[in-house]
Amino acid sequence: MLRLRQPTHGYAVRRELLSWRAGNWTNVKPGSIYHALRQLAQEGKLSTLGSQGSDQGPGRTLFELTAAGETEFRRLMDAALVSVDMEELGAAIAFMDALPRAHVLEKLREQRRRSAEVRDQLIGMTGDFPGRYAPPHATDLLELWGSVFDNPAGWTGGMIERLEAGEYRMPD
Rank of each mutant, 00 (worst) to 15 (best):
L17W: 09
E43V: 01
K29N: 07
E43I: 01
R114M: 09
N27I: 08
T139M: 10
L76V: 11
E143I: 10
N24E: 15
F95D: 02
S83C: 03
F63R: 02
G158F: 01
L17G: 03
E143P: 05
W20H: 10
M159F: 07
V118K: 08
T156A: 09
L108C: 04
L65I: 14
H137V: 12
E143G: 12
V82R: 11
T126Y: 01
T126D: 03
A98R: 12
R5L: 15
W25P: 04
E16P: 09
S54P: 06
I123F: 15
T66E: 11
A12K: 13
L65F: 13
A68W: 06
L99F: 13
G157K: 00
R60P: 14
I93E: 02
E64I: 08
G57N: 05
N151C: 08
D120R: 04
K45G: 04
G124N: 01
E143V: 09
T139V: 15
M86L: 12
G23N: 04
G69H: 05
G53D: 13
R74D: 14
Q121T: 15
V118A: 03
M86H: 06
D55A: 07
T48K: 03
P152F: 04
Q121N: 12
G154H: 08
T8R: 03
G158K: 11
S19K: 10
S115E: 03
E64R: 15
P171Q: 08
K107W: 06
A102H: 12
G57P: 04
M170D: 00
A116I: 11
P58M: 08
P135T: 14
E117T: 15
A98S: 15
R15D: 14
V13S: 01
E88R: 13
W20V: 05
H9F: 12
G146P: 09
L163F: 04
D128Q: 09
R101D: 03
F95M: 10
M86Y: 05
M125E: 14
V118Q: 03
L105F: 06
E43H: 05
A91N: 10
R60V: 06
G50A: 01
A92H: 01
Y11T: 14
V148Y: 09
N27E: 12
A80L: 05
A165P: 00
L142H: 02
Y34R: 02
G23V: 01
L4Y: 09
S115Y: 01
K107V: 07
L40W: 15
L37Y: 00
Y168V: 11
G50D: 02
D140K: 10
